[in-house]
Computed example of a mutant assay.
Amino acid sequence: MKQLVCILLLLCCCFPAFSQQTVITGAERTATYLPLLKGKRVGMLVNQTSILGPSHLVDSLLKSGVHIVKIFSPEHGFRGQADAGEKLGNSTDPATGLPIVSLYGKHRKADSADLADVDLLVFDLQDVGTRFYTYISSLQELMESAAEFNKPLIVLDRPNPNGHYIDGPVLDTAFRSFVGMQPIPTVHGMTVGEYAKMLNGEGWLKGGVQCRLTVITCENYDHNTLYSLPVKPSPNLPNMRSIYLYASTCLFEGTAFSLGRGTDKPFQVYGHPSLPKHLFSFTPRSMPGAKNPVLMNQTCYGYDLSAPSKETVRQINLEYVINAYRLFPDKNKFFNAFFNKLAGNSTLQAQIKAGQSAAAIRQSWEPGLKAFREIRKKYLLYKDF
């Protein structure tokens, strides 16, 4: 018996994952937040990632007697099937009969009519930890509406699958957009609960308003936890490889290249018809979640990054976009107007055009990252990496 205990202790020391407990999300901690919902008319900003065990959070809470009066939906919709950027109108959920108010497109902020019959708001979306993934922008605008109309907001926190590092340029606020609203780096290393606290604490909500915020934290999670998502967060992030590559390959949205939308490897390949024909080839097709992908029905030549890797992703790989620019024959047509919004500045594009190395570009990020790390520390809810 003594020998068995020694073996188990050795395994726990050498292989931390061996002793790692299962992460419990904020949504799963019902005993903590159900009393806060009792007797309230509840509005919920949720989508297909808002799960509680095997069922949707909305279904589970309705069965528990919670009085949900309205669903708010982010980009990709309540069921998460819409294309990136696809504008969805209001609708009714056929499963529950609840009204769904879309908070994406022209109507991004809940107004007085939307909130007239709501006493309390709940936010539960699985983020992927990058500045340009729009769920944190929806969080900010919901917090602003909650503050304006004096509605308390409960954030049910979930782990950040890219929460184990910080990287990228800090956004220049001259380039604010819905894919980058605050001066944070591309990869911010925070959960949505931590980020919500930062929005409040730094006075970043419009007009410096304060939201009455409650964060229901995760258990058995810290910023060294490599968390695998149980549900894909959007149609074109189908697996963990795409989620780990996303911070690097999303930059191709601001170029003439395909990054694999309309294939079975979105955000895991990149290419263009004009690249050398001996390279990896793929052809984007119209499909659910990518109805009209870039370079549809054109054979693209480029690179396949989809092979699983044992190495933990801990930084943005700039070599992909630098290599693509180097190979592209018509340099004047490589970038489009979206690139600077994704980068959060005009500097990165200029650096690539000037032929700067990835190492030199990364070095230019350091002052901004150092300042952000100091701000971030104030709002952490979990042990840092």
Rank of each mutant, 00 (worst) to 15 (best):
E366Y: 02
L115N: 03
E86H: 12
R241T: 15
A337H: 14
L52M: 03
G53V: 03
G289K: 14
G105C: 11
G65E: 05
A256E: 14
Q48M: 05
T130L: 03
G26Q: 03
S258Q: 09
L199S: 06
S309F: 04
A290H: 04
T134R: 09
G208Y: 05
Q182G: 07
Y246K: 09
F334H: 04
Y303I: 13
F372Y: 13
V42S: 00
L213R: 09
L245D: 12
A27L: 02
A110D: 12
I243L: 05
D127W: 10
C6G: 11
C250Y: 05
T173Q: 14
Y379S: 01
L153G: 07
Q140D: 10
E319G: 14
I361K: 12
C13L: 15
S102N: 09
Q351M: 11
Q3M: 15
V187C: 05
L103V: 08
K265M: 14
F175A: 11
D222N: 08
H188Q: 09
V321K: 07
P276K: 11
V192L: 15
P54C: 03
V179Q: 10
V170K: 02
M190W: 02
F257V: 11
A354D: 11
Y133K: 00
L98K: 12
S177W: 03
V294S: 15
C211G: 05
D330P: 04
K291A: 15
T49N: 07
K206Q: 07
A146S: 11
G85W: 07
L10P: 03
R176C: 06
F280E: 01
K197A: 00
V187W: 00
L36P: 09
L381D: 02
K70V: 07
R29L: 10
V23Q: 02
A290E: 01
V192C: 14
S228I: 04
K341R: 14
I352H: 05
M198Q: 08
G39N: 02
L11I: 05
G262S: 08
Q210K: 11
I166Q: 04
L342D: 12
G26V: 01
M44I: 06
Y244I: 07
A290F: 01
F339M: 07
E219P: 00
T263D: 01
P367W: 05
A110V: 14
L153Q: 08
N160C: 07
L259K: 11
L171H: 04
L11M: 04
F78M: 11
N292T: 15
S112C: 10
T96E: 01
S55H: 06
I322P: 10
P169T: 09
A247I: 09
D119S: 08
V209T: 13
Y246T: 04
L103C: 04
L318P: 10
Q20K: 13
V269Y: 12
L103F: 08
Q210S: 13
K87V: 14
A247L: 08
S228N: 05
D384S: 02
P99N: 04
A31L: 01
Q363N: 15
M1L: 06
S286C: 02
S112D: 05
T299Y: 08
I71P: 00
Q140W: 06
S258Y: 11
T263K: 06
Q3N: 15
A290D: 01
R29W: 01
K151Y: 05
Y33V: 15
L52R: 09
K310S: 14
H56D: 09
T25S: 04
D222W: 00
N90V: 09
Q268R: 08
H107Q: 06
E144V: 13
V122L: 09
L251T: 07
